[in-house]
Nucleic acid binder design. Sequence first.
DNA 1: GTGTGTGAACTTGTTCACAGCG
DNA 2: CGCTGTGAACAAGTTCACACAC
Lengths: 257, 257
Amino acid sequence: MAPGETDASGLTADVDVTEEGVREQGVSPRRIPQATVVRLPTYRRLLEEFGRSGLSTISSEMLAAAAHMNAAKVRKDLSLLGSFGTRGSGYDRDFLIGQIDLALGLDRVWPVVIVGMGNLGRALANSTRFAGQNFEVVAMLDADPDLVGQEVANGVIRPFGELGAIASSRPLAIGVVTTPADVAQDVADQLVAAGVHSLLVFAPRVIDVPRGVMVRYVDLGIELQVMSFYQSRRERQGEDHDMAVLGSVGLAGPPGD
Amino acid sequence: MAPGETDASGLTADVDVTEEGVREQGVSPRRIPQATVVRLPTYRRLLEEFGRSGLSTISSEMLAAAAHMNAAKVRKDLSLLGSFGTRGSGYDRDFLIGQIDLALGLDRVWPVVIVGMGNLGRALANSTRFAGQNFEVVAMLDADPDLVGQEVANGVIRPFGELGAIASSRPLAIGVVTTPADVAQDVADQLVAAGVHSLLVFAPRVIDVPRGVMVRYVDLGIELQVMSFYQSRRERQGEDHDMAVLGSVGLAGPPGD
DNA sequence: GTGTGTGAACTTGTTCACAGCG
DNA sequence: CGCTGTGAACAAGTTCACACAC
């Protein structure tokens, strides 16, 4: 196969993606498909970058070129947020960023808990993405007594057992699970009990959650195996296929051509 | 929306997923859609786990329940590899694992290079997934002189400038980019020049690659923003939606219901 | 009877192509 | 005339439902 770009995620592990509960209730402009939701952050980032170049108006064609995708897709995605473009010129950068933020819920700060402070948990805690504008790491937990008490990023690692206490002193929205696979389900259960409704799981394990709780998986093993698949194809067949881009986090596609 | 499960990836960032170059050439049994490729590693892992429970025959229903998905999907996916099931009983675990390995190219070891040995690069180098059976980290590079020479996992960090030399002494297949975003494109260019045909990019940046090179993205920022989207929906609307599971690495879906 | 393999229906996502606004 | 917004065509992915093999 020629490598093309994939879109991403790769590992859709799941099930049950019902779109209920959500249907128009005044607030939501329109139903936004998941495929679009996943692309909005990329558009947002590119708009920021264009801004640094001094551009204040950006066309779907420019965004599409920068994101390596089809302009019609960009327009369709953006039109789901409302009709913000100006025919003949394009979209006003600042206004569009504001609208994307509104759609993504980036008009507030979400409290995040990270459970499992090994190498990966630490890397995430130090990431600007986690410590950024809209997300605040309110707790870093681990069951290992040797790790408890250590300073990481701007805080200290606390015992996993304190989760309940932390949850009663302040609301928690997102839980990041960077523990070994064998305890991931138990950790997830306790996070859900603590009020977390969104889980980002790095452990290679399918997690059971009650309805209403969202789970997204980031699985490095799957990523590598997907690459192995395309790489072995390329070697089996002649060279020069055309691979493109795939995305894990939902970005990218399989090496198509 | 009720949280459902998503499938994942979330961030499909890409483009160009052409399926050329690949079409049937004797070796490939049949065309395997990307959606299936991404799920094969999960089936493989679940089969391993069932094996530990002593089961030697597994039905699509069992796999589906464990993976939180539809049994018909499991059967359709597996049937693309060939007709390995036995009607009335199910699939022979060991044989099926072998067939999945064959399809995924896990019958050999792929040389991996990691560029950017900050927290994340180190976490990956220490990961069993990277140091596992089918992947071998043959080089850990960084441009920072302070990091060069440090021991990580089973090796030592070398200067990024040595990439070319390393590539001429042994073939490289997969490149992992865990550098800051501003140098990611340059690093990718050099990896491609060194013969790498698959890139796993953690930097929040769209990467340009020539045809034939596959890029998959893992973007934590996108993951968090996708969670923010569904979380803010849930709060805007009544509670109790039904979210499910989404996958980043391609596993999971949007919180549907 | 049990569970696979698969055509057909359906749903989701992408691309085209063009009407129409600025 | 340029670029958005969008219906309509298309492609990909999922689920159903059932014939058939064991």
